[in-house]
Simulated assay, not measured.
Amino acid sequence: MNNSHPRWEPSLDEILVPIRGLPGASAIIGISGYGGSGKTTLAHTLAERLSAPIISIDEFGTSGVFLRSDDWQGFDRERLVRQVLAPLARGVRELSYDSCNDWETWETVPTHLVMERFLLLEGVGLFHPDVVPYLDYRIWLDVPLAEATARGIARERILGRDQGDVWQRLWGPNESDFERKFQPKESAHRLVCSERSVP
């Protein structure tokens, strides 16, 4: 199966219309959903059409992502707000933030960002009260948890990582607890589903 071109419902053009119609000189678009639901794929697809940079919540991961939590405490939302969202809200359009792309050492590297009209922010646990006020438009990937988890496990296996136990024992329950506590789907402006997710 060729996973490079998922089919979106609603269509990509229907997703883009309200985003392009947002008021103001700039807008932050939040894309969330369960792990494996297709958030990163949609973010990259929209980024290409909108000529927009992407930030993933994974860049703000800490060792806490491997702990049980009802609020995805393994993501440093305080740093995300302080280094990215609050400056953008003040009108800053060029900034640097500390990005972590190594989930073994947890070291961060300075990352440069220039925002013009749009910024795409994607990840699990994104529609949290600390972050929602900064998101001008929120998209929820409406894929059932069991299906999203199965997709995520399959994707990791393709990439040579066998993390099925982590997904089943930790991340799936974390997703359920976060949903019960914050009802992230209810805060979305648009629900989107995909035929399949891609690595």
Rank of each mutant, 00 (worst) to 15 (best):
L141H: 01
S176M: 11
G125K: 05
G172E: 11
E179D: 14
L145Q: 06
R180V: 14
V143L: 08
R155L: 08
V92E: 14
W140H: 03
V92H: 10
R82Q: 15
D130A: 13
Q163V: 15
E104Q: 12
P110C: 06
R77W: 04
E147P: 01
F127P: 00
D71L: 08
D98E: 15
R79C: 14
L170T: 14
R169I: 06
L121G: 04
F178A: 06
D162T: 13
R90W: 03
E116G: 06
W106M: 11
T108H: 07
L170M: 09
Q163T: 13
E104I: 11
E179P: 03
V65W: 01
P129D: 07
V124M: 05
Q83E: 15
R157F: 09
S69W: 04
W72T: 10
R138P: 02
W171C: 00
W72M: 12
L135H: 02
D162L: 09
W72L: 08
I158P: 00
Q73G: 11
A146H: 10
V109I: 06
A86Q: 15
G160S: 06
C100N: 11
T149H: 04
S99G: 03
G125V: 12
F66V: 06
I158D: 10
D98N: 13
V131E: 00
V132A: 09
P110L: 04
N174I: 09
D130W: 05
L67K: 15
G164A: 10
V132C: 07
R82I: 06
W171N: 00
V65R: 06
P184R: 06
R151Y: 09
I153H: 02
L88M: 05
Q163C: 13
F75H: 13
A89K: 11
R68A: 11
Q168A: 10
Q183E: 15
L135T: 06
L159Y: 12
L126E: 01
P110I: 07
L120P: 00
